[in-house]
Design a protein around this nucleic acid. Structure first.
Lengths: 403, 403
DNA sequence: CGATTTAATTTGAAACTCAAAAAAAATCTT
DNA sequence: AAGATTTTTTTTGAGTTTCAAATTAAATCG
């Protein structure tokens, strides 16, 4: 039988309303009650009731300070916003070389940030836990906080993650498969831990802080060492039934094509990821390229082999993008990640190819935005995830205690 | 600002509950009130209230006849089901050669079915309207009905359709682009018309009558003349923002590959659709294959060229399937369509290739089911769509009149 | 035939939402 | 500067809706 939401639950019929109001406020940043009512389609009376509850609970607050630019006359609107002090959360991004940590308040304002180099690329689960905790401790210390001050910790890790179970099927940072990393961490901290695939966290960050703010259907594509995708449908991250969907980097773009780090052939990542580009460049030219910078510069200087490699990467990427558009027909695609500091993946040529390869319809094609955030974006995404989940927990608690 | 659902609307706060109960009953076929309560997470009292409303409105009815196999003791459950007589709907599938019509009652029980050959493949919009109406008239006549007896008409057509607007961007059955076919038809009948891409309708049929019953996240892939996809997420068809997502057949599986009927190169369809297979076979062998039957037979007889063509089709299809799994991580994939009477698209070999090409995770891989329905399935899908939409309209009406 | 069991309905209370009225807080007008 | 006007927010009271608990209904068990 298909599982379905309750018509309403006994302890609370207002949980949905509370969540909706909170989400509206977060999306808007600062917003008056009357506008919440409009946005959420509720009556002003109901909004007054719900907001005064949320204020009493300390989740939101009035902020008169910069009065809402409204002019005209009548009673002025009073802006509401998330109360930053409501909770502190941490976001951690585990990458090959380092663990980045950001600690923010509940509004997403950064308190402190910290990057810690990792000794090894791949670790045992226990070692990775140690490293994560150490980086958290350091970040807290740097911000004059204790670990116990945190209300939630979001963690992003590359690989196959079932966020619903806080479970890692596989990660390039771990020596073992099938690690219950969430449980291991929660045993050692006193707040909930939220684990997810790193690309999903970027999508969350874009939705809450970035280009996807106020957009409810968009796709984020990240290009770094590997290629990832985050899918936002109806404002929520799409994860698939096993939690391992959105593996855009491992969709095949060539039958029996180039070898991927995953062991399979023809994955998009094997044509676009940085390791793949360097591998091919160093196989085919005398120059020894240490990094993408070098390869990109060579191509810019007219070196044929380098140019050809980046050109093919661009074409493969355009093909992958076109496939995403053909399947999802999103309103927006956000390209994100360090690789996107180089334009070979989003040059006009690539975008034109993409346009040529999508289904032709007399309606505007999806907007493509490039958002080349730095490394901390990933950790920021983890805080966004933590903020959202802690909000949900708090609202649910509020509901339970309301009776 | 992101649009969001109302907390509740003034005229009716029960619309959601009504719809949910109705959906639960339809999904179950026959179900007792107490089980509805469990499934929907509502109290028995609420279910009693809602069901008695629906019974009064004539949408559902008690059916004592085959008592629910329950045994034990206590007061026996009484089964509820959709009242077939509540409404009549028609479903039309427009294909290249023919228009198929099915008329069913509100339970989906077939009243009459009819297939009418079309004189031309591609028509002007006016001509297509004429043909659709003629086929509807004939089907009604065959069932002893009048067009006016219908409460809704679902229509499936190959091509790019925005179902939300009943609008056809492009269809291989139409000589013009951008046709407001829904409006044209509604001007000539006295009930609502619901237009959709044909693959979406197959998905709807699978969800309501077929293998997708009681599954809320699955993908349907249709292979016929072209290749289509229907995406069901959380029990609803996913359509994208412009209504032209899920164009699986036109995702690219080869850079600058085979020429597709859409004018682009490398589309999956250009390797798997029947026209593509025949085109290649007839270019490369002396035998003149008139249809897939002939090609399939030749391959079976060991003819090398035929075998090679089908083999490549199978590999390309496996790659496409693997990509779908990697992106959606669905619980179920249903392969549907006339092409699937031949096993070269779902032989063990193809499925094995697919398994090899999906991301490797220690969790069960999606189930793949083959459902080689006949031509009428498509029309049946159109009735399913009509039933669902008419249900929604009726529930909404009920809500409006309840005040 | 009463006891027991399970399903469905009724009842009464609590919660929720909303429209309308009232209050609050500003500007505009004279 | 006082009153009119405008707009936002809160309060009030009525109408729905949901649910737990009690009741009724309809079967089997012993």
């Amino acid at each position: 039988m298909a599982k379905s939401r309750r018509v309403s639950s006994s302890a609370d019929q207002r949980e949905g309303g509370r969540r909706q109001v909170l989400e509206t406020i977060r999306a808007a940043g600062r917003i008056a009650r009357i506008d919440i009512a409009k946005a959420a389609g509720a009556s002003p009376a109901t909004v007054t009731a719900i907001t005064s509850e949320l204020i009493a609970a300390g989740l939101i607050e009035e902020c008169a300070d910069p009065p809402l630019q409204d002019a005209k006359r009548g009673r002025p609107r009073v802006a509401l916003k998330i109360r930053g002090g409501a909770h502190l959360v941490a976001g951690v991004k585990v990458s090959h070389h380092a663990a980045s940590v950001v600690i923010t308040d509940f509004e997403g304002t950064e308190i402190t940030a910290r990057e810690m180099r990792l000794a090894e690329n791949r670790m045992t689960p226990a070692k990775l836990c140690d490293e994560i905790l150490r980086s958290l401790d350091e970040a807290c210390a740097a911000g004059g906080l204790a670990l116990g001050d945190l209300s939630g910790i979001g963690i992003g890790i590359a690989g196959l993650v079932d966020a619903r179970r806080n479970f890692v099927y596989w990660s390039s940072s771990l020596r073992e498969r099938n690690v219950d990393l969430g449980r291991m961490l929660e045993a050692r901290v006193h707040c909930p831990v939220f684990l997810d695939n790193d690309a999903n966290l970027v999508a969350k960050a874009e939705h809450i802080f970035g280009e996807g703010r106020n957009v409810d259907n968009f796709i984020v594509i990240t290009v770094e060492h590997g290629v990832g995708m985050g899918i936002v449908l109806d404002g929520r991250i799409y994860r698939g039934v096993r939690g391992c969907g959105a593996e855009f980097g491992h969709t095949k773009v060539q039958l029996e094509g180039a070898l991927c780090q995953c062991g399979q052939r023809g994955c998009l990542e094997a044509y676009v990821g940085d390791y793949a580009l360097l591998r091919e460049a160093n196989l085919n030219s005398e120059t020894d390229h240490k990094d993408i910078d070098s390869l990109f510069a060579a191509a810019g200087a007219g070196e044929e082999i380098a140019g050809s490699i980046l050109d093919r990467a661009g074409r493969m990427f355009a093909m992958g993008l076109a496939n995403v558009v053909n399947i999802f027909d999103p309103s927006l695609i956000i390209l994100s990640g360090a690789q996107l500091n180089y334009d070979f993946l989003y040059s006009d040529k690539v975008i034109d190819q993409m346009k040529r390869w999508i289904v032709q319809v007399d309606a505007p094609i999806p907007e493509v935005k490039v958002h080349g955030w730095g490394d901390l974006m990933w950790a920021k995404g983890a805080t966004a995830y933590a903020i959202e989940e802690v909000s949900n927990l708090t609202v649910r608690e509020l509901a339970a205690n309301a009776g």
